[in-house]
Design a protein around this nucleic acid. Structure first.
Lengths: 227, 227
DNA sequence: TCAAAAGTGTTAAGTTTACACCCATGA
DNA sequence: TCATGGGTGTAAACTTAACACTTTTGA
C-alpha cells in the first residue's frame, strides 16, 4: 500500500525495454534484429524487447532481455533513453526504455538467436523497423560513437585477443571513415593498457600478426583513451 | 482495447518526470529546487517533478511540469534518461524520466516559484536531495557540460544580449575552470554567428562593454561551435 | 586621480595529418 | 617468385596555450 494518496490519481503505463545489440563482423557493424512472429506488426523487423516486471529494475530488465536472446551475461550495456510518444506502439500506450549492448559476435548462443527468429544485419543496410525503433537505433549509434571515441568500450566488440588491423577496421566501422595505418598504430602505442601478448595470429595473413589484449587494471589506474 | 493479448500479462507502473532546471546568476550555475510540502519526504529538498498523464508524451509532460513551476514555454530541454530502480521512490514503484532545462534566470515567474516553495541554489553547494535526485543532477550536469562544449546551448542561460565577460563567466561555471580572456575572445571572434550588436552595456562597468547576440539562422547555415 | 572592468597580439609548445616503402610467409 | 597483409618514421600544417599591458570612465 502506498504511504499516502499522492500517487492514487495518476495513470500507470506499460514500461518496456528495447535492445540495440551491436556486433562486429567482417569489417562491418551489425545489429541483431528480430523478425517478429507475433502481433502487433507480425512479420516485420524489430529490436529485441520485452516488458519490465515488478521485481526488477529497468537495468536488470534490459540484462534479462539481452540474455534471453543471446545467452550472454556481463555484457556492456548503456541506456539510450526513454521513448514516450503516446502512439509509438499502436497496440497500447507503452513507454519504452532503449539500451544498447556491445557484444563479441562470436560469443552469442546461435540456438537461442535462431529460436527467436533473429539475425545479424549490416547496420548500413537496415530494413525498415517497426514503431520508433529506427530512431532508437540512430540515437544509440550516435551515443556509442561518441562514447567509443573517449572510452575504450569498442573492445567489447572484439574477442579478448585481437590484431591491430582488426582493431583499426573496427574503429573505421564505428566512425564511418578510414584511418591512416601509421597514425592509428602510433595512437595505440601511446596507450600502455593495450598490451602486446607475444602471440602471433596466422589466420589472417601468411606472415602473421601480433595479438594484443586490453589490460583493464592498467586502464583504470593510468588510462587515457583517445582513438 | 488492445489489438491482442500480448500486453495483458504485464505490470504497469507510474511514470514520473523530474526536472533539473539550470540557471546562471552572479557567476554561478544554479538549480531550481523545491522544499517539499507534501509526502513522501515532506520538508526535504527535491527536483520539480510530476506524473505523466494518459494524454501526453513524456516530452510534453516534462514541458508541462517545467511550465507549472516557472511559467515558461519554449524552453531548451534534453532528456537525461530513465531511472528505474525498484525502490528509488520509497512510497511506490515509480519509473522516473529526468530532463534538464536551461533557462535565463531572469525570465521565470517569481510568483509561481514561490508558491511551489522553490528556490535557486548554487550547484556547488547543493543540499541533500531525496531519492535518486542527486544522481539525476550529476548525470544532467555531465551531459550538459558535454553538450555545451560542442553545441551553442549555453546561450539559453543568458539574456538575449550579453557581454563577452558574462559569456566567459558562464562557460567557466559550466566547465568548472577558468579560461584565458584573450584566447576565449579569439574563439568567440571565429564564430560569426555570435554577433556584435553595437550596443554598449554600462551596468557592469564604468567604461561599458559591447553587447553580443546569437544569430541562430547564421548558426544553422554555417555554424561550427567550439568553446 | 584612481579603481575597476574592457579590450587587444605574439610566440612557443604540442598535436595532428600526410605520406611510401620494406618484411615475412604460404601458396 | 609473387601476392598478401604486417609493420615502420619524418616533416609540415595546424591548433592550443601562455603571457601583460593600455583604455575608458564614474566616483
Amino acid at each position: 500500500m502506498p504511504k499516502c494518496n499522492y500517487y492514487r490519481e495518476h495513470p500507470k503505463f506499460y514500461v518496456s525495454i528495447d535492445c540495440i545489440i551491436f556486433g562486429f563482423s567482417r569489417g562491418k557493424l551489425n545489429l541483431l534484429l528480430l523478425k517478429r512472429n507475433f502481433e502487433p506488426s507480425k512479420g516485420q523487423w524489430s529490436l529485441m524487447g520485452g516488458f519490465v516486471q515488478k521485481d526488477e529494475s529497468t537495468d536488470n530488465a534490459a540484462k534479462r532481455i539481452l540474455r534471453e536472446l543471446t545467452g550472454l551475461d556481463d555484457v556492456y550495456m548503456e541506456q539510450v533513453g526513454a521513448f514516450g510518444e503516446i502512439d509509438r506502439d499502436p497496440g497500447e500506450r507503452v513507454v519504452s526504455i532503449a539500451y544498447y549492448a556491445l557484444i563479441n559476435i562470436d560469443d552469442h548462443d546461435e540456438q537461442s538467436v535462431q529460436s527467436h527468429n533473429a539475425s545479424w544485419t549490416d547496420i548500413s543496410a537496415l530494413p525498415e523497423l517497426i514503431f520508433d525503433h529506427r530512431e532508437m537505433v540512430d540515437r544509440a549509434r550516435n551515443m556509442m560513437k561518441q562514447k567509443a571515441s573517449v572510452e575504450p568500450i569498442g573492445f567489447n566488440l572484439l574477442p579478448e585477443l585481437f590484431t591491430l588491423t582488426r582493431l583499426q577496421t573496427l574503429y573505421e566501422a564505428i566512425y564511418g571513415e578510414t584511418m591512416d595505418k601509421r597514425n592509428f598504430r602510433k595512437r595505440v602505442a601511446d596507450m600502455a593498457f593495450i598490451e602486446e601478448t607475444g602471440i602471433i595470429d596466422k589466420t589472417g595473413s601468411k606472415r602473421g600478426a601480433r595479438l594484443y589484449r586490453v589490460n583493464s587494471d592498467l586502464y583504470r589506474k593510468t588510462g587515457k583513451f583517445k582513438i
